[in-house]
Computed example of a mutant assay.
Amino acid sequence: MRIVENEENMRLTIAKLLFICLSVSLLVACATSPTGRTQLIFMPDSEVNSMGLQAFDTMKRDNPVSRNAASNQFVNCVANAITREVGGEWEVVVFEDQTLNAFALPGGKIGVHTGLLDLVDNQDQLAVVIGHEVGHVIARHSNERLSQQVGTNMGVSLVQAVAAPQSALGQTAIGLLGVGAQYGIIMPYSRLQESEADTIGLDLMAKAGFNPAESIRLWQKMDQASQGAQPVEFLSTHPSHSSRIESLRTRLPQAQQFQQQAHAAGKRPHCVK
């Protein structure tokens, strides 16, 4: 009888320990996004940043980089104004690619396609896209997506797979980082992450002194372009929902206040296309 009681006590003890371990793991994994949303993140930021750096180096090696001085100056002017609001060191590269696309990667990397530069009318519209993409990075959306793979025992493999983007696992890893169409895989952000990046990006560009009202025109132009013969990669990898423009209109008054504060502080970007 005493043996049975001891076994039962041991099971209860083990169960309690497992519960404590699980609770601690969940607490460690809990994070909060810039908008106040609770996130479950397992991957070390250092590993995700390393993946971003490696993926960006691969893209620079495999894709032609623009040497057009005017294009590079325009993109760097806009990107630098936005990233100053975030802090840290960022590398900005313009890729010779006629698709309408841009992206930002963990580790401080920003890529803009020349096709997007042909679409935007001014600095403010480009700031909408770059702010949106930087929003994904500072909200740790790549980490959030990669963390989902840790539970399937793919975490370490994904980190290593970035070095081989042509492999199936490499395509998955790069897709989870926020890019990947160049390598044959499209892994869209969730609607929640897209909405969050819209909000963060709109506020970010306004705090840098850009005009947030241009976000409406930019997304209208993107939607119009998607109806034509040329595919809009930015919309294929970043789903555009019917509520997006309306959500931006709702957020606009707050963003315009940020713009007024930026102007009062002397932040008036003058980036010439």
Rank of each mutant, 00 (worst) to 15 (best):
F103G: 00
I82R: 05
K267W: 09
V78K: 02
S71A: 11
N101C: 06
V75D: 04
I20Q: 08
A31T: 12
Q261A: 11
V134W: 01
R140V: 00
T114C: 02
A197H: 11
Q125P: 02
A55G: 13
H241C: 00
Q148T: 12
Q254R: 13
N72Q: 01
T35E: 14
N101Y: 05
S243Q: 03
G155A: 04
S33A: 15
T99L: 10
V112H: 11
V86D: 06
A104D: 06
I174F: 04
R249K: 14
P269T: 11
C77M: 09
I14F: 10
Q39A: 14
L100Y: 11
V94Q: 05
Q256S: 10
L22K: 08
Q261R: 12
V272A: 10
V75F: 10
L27T: 12
K273V: 05
Q39K: 14
N101L: 01
Q98K: 15
F210N: 04
V65P: 09
E194G: 03
G178M: 11
R140P: 03
P239G: 05
D57N: 15
L17H: 15
K221D: 00
N6E: 14
I20D: 09
Y189F: 09
V28C: 00
F258W: 05
G201Y: 00
K207N: 02
L117V: 02
K267F: 07
S46A: 13
Q227E: 15
E8I: 09
F210C: 07
I216W: 02
V92L: 00
E7D: 06
M1V: 09
D121F: 00
N6F: 09
V159Y: 10
I3C: 10
A213F: 12
H238Y: 04
A102L: 03
G180M: 00
E233L: 06
I130T: 06
G88R: 01
F19D: 14
N101P: 05
T250Q: 13
R2C: 13
P239M: 06
R140M: 02
E214M: 10
S66V: 09
T13G: 15
L26W: 13
S226D: 04
L192M: 08
E7A: 12
V48M: 06
M205T: 11
G111R: 08
K109C: 04
A264M: 15
P269K: 12
V159M: 03
M205P: 11
M10G: 03
S240W: 05
N6K: 13
L202Y: 09
L177R: 01
H263Y: 01
A29G: 02
H136D: 07
M187T: 06
V179Y: 08
L117D: 04
I110Y: 01
A265F: 13
V28W: 13
R217S: 15
V137I: 14
S236Y: 12
L40H: 12
L252T: 04
D57C: 12
A70L: 09
T199R: 08
S240I: 03
S25F: 14
Q123L: 06
L17D: 11
P269D: 11
L248V: 14
T83E: 11
A102H: 14
E5M: 14
C77G: 02
G131E: 03
G87S: 09
E133S: 01
S240N: 14
F234H: 08
A69I: 03
D121P: 01
L146I: 10
R191N: 06
A264F: 08
L248F: 14
R145A: 14
A181R: 13
G52V: 01
S236E: 12
Q160P: 01
E194R: 02
